[in-house]
Amino acid sequence: MGHGTMEWLALLSFGDKGWGDELLRGLGVTLALSLATFPVAVVLSFLIHWARVSRLGPIRVAARAYTTVFKTLPEILTLLILYYQSQALVDWVSARLVPGGSLSVSPFIAGMIALSLVISAYGSEVVRAALNAVGRGQTEAAKSLGLSRPRTFQKVILPQLWRHAIPGFGNLWVILLKDTSLVSIIALSDLVHVAALAINTTREPFLFYLLIGAIYILLVVLSSHLQKALERRASRGFTRLETGDA
């Protein structure tokens, strides 16, 4: 292959001949997918946790099945099934709502759904552990003060919960960030997909995969710094004893 450094730089330049601008857009898609998925996954994590401790047996069983399935299946399989199968469901629904209309599940949406399902299966356990760490005493104390259940959760539990949930959710954010690469397989133009396109014309797999690998590493390292900062913020006002490493 024998390309010199200058030629490599030219391949990464911005403009018509280089892949710099395409890669930047790929990065944008990767980040957009991660950022759009994460809040959905966090909310789902709470819902799944509540379903798992529900008083209704069938709901508990369904929630257990949900976490088992999505923690067991390879993400890529979940994604492929969802991408091709969800369309049948959407068609069925849309045919009843809008006769003649058709809605299409884009790779972006399919990726969002699949990754939310997977991340929330793990996230429900982060929620459970965090709630345990807050302790039941808090709920009982709030109850004795006459607070309603939603208010107790919102005003008493949630502010303390974050402190315990940030490490777990931070971990899941990093997993999510990396898992978005799988959506390249169903042709969403994320970083990996753009790199593959670039390699098709430039024949330089080492350069491009190394480069996007470095970008992911950078994102992950940045995320962990951000997480540390958030952890510090969330532990403000707690004594050293409480926050000390177990």
Binding site: K178, D179, S181, L182, S184, V192, I199, P205, F206, Y209, L210, I212, G213, Y216, I217, L218, L219, V220, V221
Partner: peptide, 14 residues
Amino acid sequence: GMPLLVQLFLVYYG
């Protein structure tokens, strides 16, 4: 820090 997919591509094609 790298997605496994990228590591596989890097080892195999890279």
